Simulated assay, not measured.
Amino acid sequence: MPASVARTVHRHVEVDGVDVFYRESLPDRAGAPVLLLLHGFPSGSHQFRRLIDVLGSRYRLIAPDYPGFGRTEVPGGFTYSFDRLAGITEGFVRRLGLDRFVMYVFDFGAPVGFRLAERRPESIAGLVVQNGNVYEDGLSDAARDALLADYRHPGAEAALGDLLTLSGTRHQYEAGVTDPELIAPDGWILDQHFLDRPGRKAAQLALFSDYRTNIESYDRWQAWLRRHTPPALIVWGAGDPFFTAPGAHAYLRDLPRAELHLLDTGHFALETHLPEIAPLIADFLDRTWK
């Protein structure tokens, strides 16, 4: 029997003057559960390509690129902030007519996704959290140093060291990984290709300067979890040097019924542990989507 590999379309949709690129699987059945995939820094929707291939024939997987990432194009003068990214994502959800979905949040996808959840709580059927931190418990010292600094000054890029370079991007993929040979180099090379495009590093500096607003929102987002108690699957690369394993455990304070899996890998857990993560997501969608 041939393997079931998803048919995936690659489209653009205009949202408030932003040309949003996205990937969407075409499942074999009508009314399939919807999984909105929110990517992290410095990546884009391409980080979910293999997950879409594996699950997209059974479920409707949708992955947009944020402004300043991937193939999404913005007009001149666009102001980069996490509120603005969330606003564009909310507009994207509206344009696609997504009334209800499970939300996968990873890295930057957590502050984007939780802002979206605050605005549209009725739409959130469940959460898949993969190294998407909303607790101070999960911030390493390196993350605090990087995310609480102000980069709105001359020479700010130098203050980030090699984080915006190819070696820095590669390090994000390989740090904390027990077997780096499992990681295809395509991911960090493609990320760097987009990061090196005109204006992209300035966009990242603006977002890093704005990151403190996310940390200031942690208490509010934790209260949202306690109030709405969404079903949640937490899969976490325990070797992540930025968002550490205590941040995964912290979700259980507010969602004691959440399902937690710590994996022996790093930040980009899908790169090495797709065979473990994909069945967990499939089972979660089957149990959650009613």
Score class of each variant (00 low, 15 high):
Pro2Met: 14
Ala3Pro: 13
Val5Phe: 07
Thr8His: 01
Val9Trp: 06
Arg11Ile: 05
His12Asp: 10
Glu14His: 00
Arg23Gln: 15
Asp28Tyr: 03
Gly31Gln: 09
Ala32Phe: 02
Pro33Glu: 08
Val34His: 07
Leu35Gly: 06
Leu38Cys: 07
Phe41Lys: 07
Pro42Leu: 05
Ser43Met: 08
Arg49Met: 10
Leu51Ser: 08
Gly56Trp: 05
Tyr59Thr: 06
Arg60Asn: 09
Leu61Lys: 03
Ala63Pro: 11
Tyr66Trp: 01
Pro75Gln: 08
Thr79Asp: 14
Ser81Met: 06
Asp83Gln: 13
Glu90Pro: 01
Gly91Arg: 05
Arg95Asp: 01
Arg95Glu: 15
Gly97Trp: 00
Phe101His: 11
Met103Ala: 13
Ala110Val: 05
Ala117Met: 12
Ala117Val: 05
Arg119Val: 09
Pro121Trp: 12
Val128Asp: 02
Val129Arg: 10
Asn133Trp: 13
Val134Tyr: 03
Gly138Phe: 03
Ser140Arg: 09
Ser140Ala: 07
Asp141Val: 15
Asp141Met: 14
Ala142His: 08
Ala142Phe: 12
Asp145Arg: 15
Leu147Trp: 15
Ala156Phe: 11
Ala158Pro: 04
Asp162Leu: 09
Leu163Asp: 10
Leu164Cys: 09
Leu164Gln: 08
Thr165Leu: 10
Leu166His: 05
Arg170Phe: 04
Gln172Cys: 09
Gly176Cys: 04
Val177Gln: 03
Thr178Phe: 05
Glu181Pro: 01
Glu181Phe: 04
Asp186His: 10
Trp188Cys: 08
Asp191Lys: 02
Leu195Asn: 12
Arg197Glu: 14
Ala203Tyr: 13
Gln204Lys: 08
Leu207Asn: 07
Ser209Pro: 03
Ser209Asp: 09
Tyr211Glu: 02
Tyr218Val: 00
Tyr218Lys: 04
Gln222Glu: 14
Arg227Ile: 02
Pro230Gln: 13
Pro230Thr: 13
Ala232Asn: 12
Ala232Met: 12
Ala238Ser: 14
Phe243Arg: 06
Thr244Met: 11
Thr244Asp: 04
Tyr251Gly: 00
Asp254Met: 00
Leu255Asn: 01
His261Phe: 12
His261Asp: 05
Thr265Pro: 04
His273Lys: 12
Ala278Val: 04
Ala278Met: 04
Leu280Met: 14
